[in-house]
Amino acid sequence: MRPLIGAAAAAELQGSVRLDVRWTLGGPSREADYAAGHLPGAVRLDFDRDVCGPVGPVGGRHPLPEPEALQAVLRSAGIDDDSHVLVYDDGDGMAAARTWWTLRWAGIENVQVLEGGFKAWTGAGLPLETEAVQPKPGTATVRPGHLPMLDAEGAAEWAATRELVDVRAPERYRGEMEPVDPVAGHVPGAINLFLGEDDLSDPDRLRERYAAHPEAAYYCGSGVGAARTALAVTAAGLPTPPVYIGSWSDWVSRGRDVATSVPPAAGEER
């Protein structure tokens, strides 16, 4: 199943569980936006509270939830093991991609992200509703480990032996600025491939971009942008890559070594 689906095709699907995960980094809950209008039948999930786990001293800003907690969320949303799940956010794909990744990691196979998100749906003139949805409880069983994931030790080993890719902006990678986390820099040995505004709907361009990194694992600030990169790689028809899900915020919370110099290009002396 292609991980992305357009608004027109999504509107034709019957029986999908629709998840509204609209989210703003560091901003207020988007409950008001859900109440003002959402896809018909969509269940609201709070990205920080429901899709991610609670923030602790280590683990990063968006850790994975405990399996039992995630299972309770999925069941309350009406999800069964064989449900088709349609996830959408505003349109940048960040929260939707991390939700897609989390559900796939948890063993829910039939998950797609609405291409272009809520904006694409409304732009196509498709209907909305304002009533809160209370679905019949589902029976999903969370079975962790269905997508490749790295922890800090795994990320350090990957950077030393293969290719660990930092998808944050170059100035954050170089340690010149850090607007969110308390320490600037990057994982030693990691290279930088800025996520930017990748158009997820162009698989040929995505394949050209990511096929050059067949053994790469990806990280970002807190595992959201890296999950979007994993979605992009998958949408290009390539194997879903490993994600360091704690990412930079987890790395620095553990007091790991930090690099700011840029690794030399292939063929250059170190």
Rank of each mutant, 00 (worst) to 15 (best):
V180M: 04
E163P: 00
Q71K: 07
D82Q: 14
R168H: 00
P67T: 10
L74W: 00
T102S: 12
T102G: 11
L128T: 00
V183I: 14
P127I: 02
G116T: 07
T130I: 05
P127A: 06
V183H: 12
V165F: 10
R143T: 04
Y173C: 10
H146L: 14
R162Y: 02
Q112G: 14
V113F: 15
V183W: 13
R98S: 06
D80I: 09
A169Q: 06
A160C: 13
D80L: 09
G59I: 12
V180I: 06
A184V: 13
G116H: 10
E157R: 11
R162K: 15
E157D: 12
V87W: 03
T102R: 14
A106W: 03
V165M: 12
L64Q: 10
D80E: 12
E129A: 06
L150R: 02
V85G: 11
M149F: 02
D198T: 05
E163A: 01
D198P: 06
D81Y: 15
Q134C: 01
Q71D: 02
R172T: 12
I191G: 11
P144S: 03
D89S: 12
E176D: 08
P170C: 09
P182A: 10
P144V: 08
T161R: 14
V111G: 04
V180A: 06
G59W: 06
N192L: 08
F194H: 09
E178S: 12
R143A: 06
T139L: 05
Y173H: 15
G196K: 05
G78W: 07
A96K: 14
P135C: 04
V180R: 15
R143Y: 10
R98D: 10
L64E: 13
W158H: 08
A69P: 02
I108E: 04
A97G: 15
E115L: 15
L114M: 13
T141H: 10
E171R: 09
R162L: 00
M177Q: 15
L103N: 07
Q71R: 00
A190S: 01
R61P: 01
G175P: 15
I108P: 08
A95F: 12
E66G: 02
M177C: 07
H186Q: 09
L193P: 11
G185P: 15
L147F: 05
E129L: 06
R168G: 01
G138Q: 14
L114C: 14
V85R: 14
T99A: 07
D151R: 02
L114I: 15
D198G: 00
F118P: 00
G116S: 02
R168K: 01
P137F: 04
G117S: 07
F194C: 01
R143V: 01
R98V: 04
